[in-house]
Write a protein that binds this DNA or RNA. Structure first.
Length: 273
DNA sequence: CTGAAGACCTGCCTGC
DNA sequence: TGCAGGCAGGTCTTCA
């Protein structure tokens, strides 16, 4: 489901939904795990604590309490849904509802995730920096010359490099394809063969596509919705993603699908060089 | 060390 | 109608 724009919209709608200083009453678990076991003990210690802020880092959702942060990753199909008022005792979970966060205010957050690639972690604030030490910089930040040099030294296709979260975070399969189309760059092109100016152009396009996608509420392909249930509309702007066999919007050539590192890549074989 | 493939899961769609 | 196969927004682990 979620790349950076979708996670950003989940964070924004979470922040605007949950009232300030909402205090946790309890967690209700409908299974012991998602991708990994729920850290039940650490989560339970958050009972009685109030949410201070909610932020995004890469594709992670950070719910900050006084000393600890609850980290949620949505994997491919994870979803948080907000209920203004809900009696958890009468709540009848659907098949893929795995966790409830119940607030003293009677507000409730439901976590659902059919494929269960998502996960939940609790990390103390002084461990947060360490937790994210191995991931790359935010894509909306200025991309430094030294970062571009790192990319230039990679002996791999630009598309898989863009999706590698250890350099620049947040770019997933959709936005990697779309940004390379916008940049007229073939996704199979080796990083070694792209100039500094070429990389600057690619990251400029990454930034503009991500910000438009955020503005449009993200991309809803089959099931992405924000915590209020609203769909995004950036899927209507796709130039290549999911358009195999259809005409290129620039040159009319048929859009091609290939597999790179196990993921589908869509591109125009004629105007992406 | 690097980069690609495999694994993790369920649901949905296509084609036989 | 049923069933096998392929595909899906991500990331961690394994292997070459």
């Amino acid at each position: 489901m979620p790349e950076l724009p979708e996670v950003e919209n989940v964070v924004r709608t979470l922040s605007s939904s949950i009232r300030a200083n909402a205090e946790i009453l309890d967690f209700i678990f409908y299974r012991p795990d998602l991708r990994w076991k729920f850290p039940k003990k650490e989560m339970t210690l958050l009972r009685g604590q109030a949410i201070q802020t909610i932020q995004r880092r890469a594709k992670y959702i950070l719910i900050n309490f006084k000393d600890d942060t609850l980290i949620s990753h949505l994997g491919m199909t994870g979803k948080w849904t907000y209920y203004h008022e809900l009696d958890q005792k009468k709540f009848n979970p659907e098949k893929h509802d795995h966790l409830l966060i119940v607030f003293k205010s009677r507000e409730v957050l439901v976590y659902s995730d059919p494929r269960r690639f998502g996960f939940i972690d609790v990390v103390s604030q002084d461990q947060l920096e360490k937790y994210f030490a191995h991931i790359g910089i935010e894509p909306m930040e200025q991309i430094s010359e030294s970062m571009i040099q790192k990319f230039k030294n990679l002996d791999r296709p630009i598309k898989t490099a863009l999706m590698d979260q250890s350099f620049v975070v947040g770019i997933g399969n959709i936005y990697a394809c779309e940004a390379l189309f916008q940049s007229h760059v073939n996704p199979k092109k080796s990083c070694k063969k792209i100039s500094v100016a070429g990389f600057k152009n690619i990251f400029k396009n990454v930034q503009s596509i991500l910000s438009s996608a955020i503005e449009m509420g993200g991309s809803s392909i089959s099931d992405y919705v924000d915590v209020q249930g609203a769909k995004g509309s950036f899927q209507n702007q796709f130039q290549v993603y999911g358009r195999e066999g259809k005409a290129c919007t620039r040159c009319d050539t048929k859009i091609k699908r290939v597999v790179q590192a196990g993921r589908s890549t869509f591109y125009c074989p004629s105007c992406q060089k």
